[in-house]
Design a protein around this nucleic acid. Structure first.
Lengths: 210, 210, 210, 210
DNA sequence: TATGAATGAGTGTTCATTCAT
DNA sequence: AATGAATGAACACTCATTCAT
């Protein structure tokens, strides 16, 4: 009777369902070891159906990166760009956002995948860099430079500072994805973020700003 | 004295030559995408000769990880364990050593490989963790705890501190391996290390120790 | 009635077509020397298609043995089990059936294959034994024991008698498969069967010589 | 000191040692599955040394068949040819000799090998046929024909009679080689030979049933 | 739009054979 | 005569991609 709209909605959702399944499989296995058959099975479609929406496996990989990036990048960048200060509050926000982003299971998996496959699929590294890593890093560096101009942050390379800020949390995620499955103890990302902010605050900022 | 044993030396060197070639190819392509034929070609031997020394591709992978790990791990761990203080000097040493280790082309490539293939080859992640990552991190954490006991370092989770210390340099290497080939600007690892030590020193240490 | 389901029939027949081709190739070459590519070519499919139906070469081998066994075993065993006597009539039936079975080109080839590969693939020997050789031999031995109980057959080991009955015909087939292709004269299996039945019934020697 | 003669003797024995090792391995695995490395190891020489004596694997196979055949064939044939009768005594002799030959572990293994590899290596089947099987069978058939001429043996095809005489014992050996390793009960070859001689002499059926 | 059977190029691995020593 | 490291052709098996239906 009214089966038709449901059917159409399913059809419209197919690409997104496939991308979601591919995200999971790519994050688990990496690009080369991911099997299109498994992606199709998880998406509930046939292998052939994948090719109705994506011309090649690499194309599908691109769609995955794009979809995993989109929700994260704009918010982060804008947050950095528009933050008025004081810088210590921005630090806390960064830590919160990174902790939240890291909580998404996709993030670590895709990050691992990008790192692992960068040399074999440079364009994917380019997308991830241009649309996520560089955007976030540069926006954060700009915010740091602004804070330096306001006298809130010590002199130094703002881009390096940005890396210093983000690296422990990113590494915490990579650690979790890489070593926890083989028995290593995890890091409490929220606690790590909190401690890192404190460390940075008391050392990164000018005496007068403390 | 005796005649030049050219062929004997070659035979004895074969495994090392193969491992070196495999290191290069694995670092470039990751495990799955590495072709034994290319490894053999770079080692200057036939594909069949690989099997005189390594029973499977995975065995060869293990040898590569083992060889890339061995030179690094012992020195680092002992350095941490035996350092008497003050802690600020240890920080500088850590930065130097990490910068030097990161300079070795093997390190970044193998790290990338381990991260990328961890889920598909858990044993490799286990080796890398047990023999390198955990050893270095725990030794550094122990040194931090000792420095905390001496009143040189603020209270806080020493293992998290250890990650905070190492992460930016490791991320700098991963950045170089991942994004520089697609046009991203690199980080000057030595300068990054220097700035990071300064940042940590002024924030990580107690007022009295500064 | 419904439209001719040509393609459906082809799909349904594929496994049987492949097994038939494999039977031919295995019978000709034995297991180790059989090439999957040749099997695929004779079946009119690609090498990859074999793996849609059989997980490994050994699995395919098992299917071949199973298919070669199925049509033969049930009839033979039941014939032995249910035959009421006199025993001489059963002898004639056995000879007829063995001659007919030996006429099937599959039998000799598969028998040769099982004999040749038994040590390397014990499970195949087990299948052939449990489902064909032992069944037929034991059923015949039971019929002989019954005939002994009726006083029709001399005392003696019924299982050995069963082997004495079957062996010349089986050897005739093996001879044909093994030596006739290199120029040896064949045996006329029907005539051999007839003479063997007579010999078993009355002995080889003339009355006067006994 | 006097090491020299011993060394020379060893050298002279090499081919025979290699053939003996090859016989064992071929009998166990068949031709295709036999590994030259294992043959060399069992012979206590290097793989390369095999090629000092035998140009190819097939050549080695031929030497094995030749060596395994030689000791058996002449005696059997001459025994048949020269036996004066009565025929019943010859039957007993045949059974004894076949039982003894079957007791040699080599016989069954090589027979199995020849059967299994006949189609792939026709020349080997030819050697086995021309120098062993046909010689023995034809000599026995000739003896039977002579006995028929003397009125000792019933009319009938003497070559078929020869097969009827030999087949149960040969099948007993093949059964042992093929099915006993997977748990089948063996046949007592000596008892089988005895019963078969009696059966041939007097028939399977009781006097009253004939 | 959707299927899934089919393809075939590509890969890891084996092993008879060669050859420098 | 002897070694054993090295070769490379050959094979089982995989999987991204195609296409008849």
């Amino acid at each position: 009777m009214s089966g038709e709209p449901r059917f159409r909605r399913r059809k419209a959702d197919r690409p997104a369902e496939i991308v979601a399944a591919a995200l999971a499989v790519f994050a688990e296995k990496g690009f080369a070891a991911a099997r299109l058959e498994e992606i199709a099975r998880r998406a509930g479609v046939s292998k052939g159906a994948l090719y109705l929406y994506f011309a090649t496996k690499e194309e599908l990989f691109r769609a995955v990166v794009g979809q995993a990036i989109a929700p994260n990048v704009l918010g982060l960048r804008d947050m950095f760009a528009q933050h008025p200060g004081p810088f210590r509050d921005l630090l806390r926000l960064v830590a919160e956002r990174l902790t939240a982003a890291a909580g998404a299971p996709a993030f670590g998996g895709v990050a691992k995948m990008v790192i692992g496959e960068a040399r074999n699929f440079p364009e994917l590294a380019r997308v991830w860099h241009d649309e996520l890593a560089a955007q976030a890093l540069d926006a954060l560096a700009a915010a740091i430079a602004a804070a330096q101009a306001r006298g809130e942050v010590r002199p130094g390379d703002p881009r390096a500072y940005a890396l210093q800020i983000a690296a422990p949390l990113v590494m915490g995620v990579i650690w979790r994805e890489t070593f926890v499955p083989v028995g290593a103890p995890s890091f409490d990302l929220a606690a790590l973020a909190h401690q890192h902010v404190e460390t940075l605050a008391s050392g990164l900022l000018q005496e007068t700003a403390r």
